[in-house]
């Protein structure tokens, strides 16, 4: 497990993982909402190939990030009270959970909808389900519930970072920057 050492800041690899996932998620969410409302056209299909490609990239990065987090030493949480600490830990756990659940449920939608896909027009993505309408509908519900939860928790996450940076004037944000 991750050791909570008295490091001042995150390791450069942790920072890289954090900002790469952040950047990809900020492209991915609007892309998903944009693509789903397009009428069926080659453009829509291209946008979904991007969405699926970025989603699988996020899944890969998040898995590597979790493995790194488990094996590395991470700084102690900056939190004044035990309840703040517990909330922060829970929020981060939910963030990781959603970052896994979103690409996995998306992968399931794509497979159950019988849409084969080559990620970045190069790598064929294997199907994790046969064509199945009810699986597709269930996975879609999960995907939507997860993205709404992710948006909410990202607002809290960014809000908390800004609160630490601007109001509390501590190092919470700075120690995640390079």
């Amino acid at each position: 497990m991750a050791k909570k050492g008295d490091l001042d800041e995150w390791s450069w690899l942790s920072k890289l993982f954090h900002w790469v996932t952040a950047g990809l998620i900020f492209i991915q969410i609007p892309l998903g909402f944009y693509a789903k409302d397009l009428k069926l056209s080659p453009l829509k299909i291209d946008m979904f190939i991007w969405h699926k490609s970025i989603g699988m990239l996020i899944l890969l990065v998040v898995i590597m990030r979790l493995l790194w987090r488990i094996r590395s030493t991470i700084p102690l949480p900056i939190a004044a009270t035990a309840i703040e600490k517990a909330l922060a830990t829970a929020a981060h756990a939910v963030l990781y959970g959603l970052m896994l659940a979103l690409p996995l449920s998306g992968w399931l939608i794509s497979s159950a909808a019988n849409f084969p896909v080559k990620l970045f027009w190069l790598i064929p993505l294997p199907a994790i389900s046969g064509p199945d309408e009810s699986v597709k509908l269930l996975a879609t519900e999960i995907h939507i519930a997860c993205v709404i939860s992710l948006i909410c928790i990202l607002i809290v996450h960014i809000g908390a970072a800004l609160r630490h940076h601007i109001l509390l004037k501590d190092d919470a944000l700075k120690r995640m920057w390079f």
Binding site: I45, I49, N114, F115, P116, V117, K118, W121
Partner: peptide, 8 residues
């Protein structure tokens, strides 16, 4: 075929 992958 879609992206060169088969769809049945």
């Amino acid at each position: 075929s879609y992206q060169g992958l088969p769809i049945n």
